[in-house]
Design a protein around this nucleic acid. Structure first.
Lengths: 137, 137
DNA sequence: TATAAACCTATCAAGTCAATAGGTTTATAG
DNA sequence: CTATAAACCTATTGACTTGATAGGTTTATA
């Protein structure tokens, strides 16, 4: 299940997507509007900066802004940037070591298929789409 | 992510699906063949009995057996029987209290759609199908 | 130059996960 | 009849994760 980490990340990104592209929005403003602990948000936003999804500007008048257009982000990459796992089972994670029971495993096909489906789903939705009221999908 | 609880449940069920329908298979045999701690398996199997997916017979010569034909079980119900959550977010769980932010929530549509898709996927695969080598799906 | 912001490190309580331990009850095999 | 083998029951544990808090340092600008 997607935890608050991923959910807050999406709220944060939609928040930034609603701002003027060039201006920097302080975390304080975002956390106040979204009613999420500023300190906790900090941990999440750090991951987004590290993965270059957003950009931080220090000092007075600073804040955060997107590095690209909202339509160029997928929900999948945002979730994965903050450490959410889209894979349904541990053995399908990128860092998983190969399983010696894979040949005999009756479920691996199913998990792989689901994994593909989930990936396609979340990488097929843009941040832009999320912010629109009526969704055609 | 599906934890060992759900994965072991599937292994256990496929194991039982491979046995003669009427005979009872002791947990000891299953855990030995599957190389899973007997005591831990006990916790999982208890859930399956409680939810009537399998039937236990006490005493010498006892064990466990399926209550229906392997084709009448879906992967989804097996996973949910042992407590795995198929919903992608907490607010979509059956026991979740209604969210007052739902109207303003930009992500709820997406989660609901994914939830439906996952449900259809896992409830659309039978235990029977899992045990077959070549899957046409 | 005071201030406001990002950025950094550490800690915490509660909960979950995977497993272990040591029993009691029940039915049957011999 | 009785020893045995099995399900069934309750409690505990260590490691890890989650969501959050606390108290700083650094940096840029109003």
């Amino acid at each position: 299940m997607i935890s608050t980490r991923g959910r807050y990340a999406l709220r944060l990104m939609t928040e930034l997507a609603g701002q003027e592209p060039e201006i920097y929005t302080p975390l304080k403003d975002i956390s106040k509007r979204q009613q999420i602990s500023e300190k906790y948000m900090e941990i999440i936003i750090k991951e987004l900066v590290k993965n270059k999804l957003i950009q931080g500007l220090r000092g007075k008048g600073g804040g955060y802004r997107l590095t690209r257009s909202p339509s160029d982000y997928s929900v999948g990459e945002i979730l994965e940037a903050v450490g959410e796992q889209l894979a349904p089972v541990a053995c399908l994670l990128p860092e998983a070591e190969s399983c010696d029971r894979e040949d005999a495993c009756p479920t691996i096909r199913m998990w792989k298929e689901f994994n593909q489906m989930s990936h396609d789903f979340f990488y097929g939705i843009s941040l832009n789409e999320l912010t629109q009221k009526t969704v055609s999908r």
